[in-house]
């Protein structure tokens, strides 16, 4: 399994043809207390860059983009009842949705963990 990061502060775990997507710990810290997560329906298809989910704090609503193209195979229903999971465990239990990867070449050019850390430090 390998983990990728985007400059939109999302992480992607790739296992075979399935990618699990969430927002980074840095992102959840910036957003503050998460109060609601709107997740995509299973079967929804996204092109890379489409609005795929919404994450809300008290004062802001942020779009989560599909980091790569694909079809949603599962959404993390635990977030519906407990959006605070995104704050407490953004990069594991707080995942958002899983995609069936349409084009693995889109993963090229994404950051690894070290590169993302460097990117965050530069902000």
């Amino acid at each position: 399994m390998s983990r990728y990061f985007t400059d939109e502060h999302e992480w992607i775990d790739v296992e075979g043809e399935i990618a699990t997507v969430g927002i980074t710990d840095y992102a959840q810290e910036q957003l503050g207390d998460i109060v609601f997560v709107e997740l995509p329906a299973e079967g929804a298809s996204f092109e890379k860059g489409d609005d795929a989910a919404v994450v809300e704090s008290v004062k802001a609503a942020s779009d989560v983009y599909a980091p790569i193209s694909g079809e949603v195979v599962e959404s993390n229903s635990a977030l519906e009842d407990e959006p605070a999971l995104v704050n407490s465990d953004a990069e594991e239990d707080g995942w958002f949705f899983k995609l069936r990867i349409a084009d693995a070449s889109e993963l090229e050019g994404l950051m690894n963990e070290a590169a993302y850390k460097k990117f965050v430090a530069s902000l």
């Binding site: 109060v35 609601f36 008290v58």
Partner: peptide, 8 residues
Amino acid sequence: LDETLAAR
């Protein structure tokens, strides 16, 4: 007031 609680 706790706005986070109100929204969650």
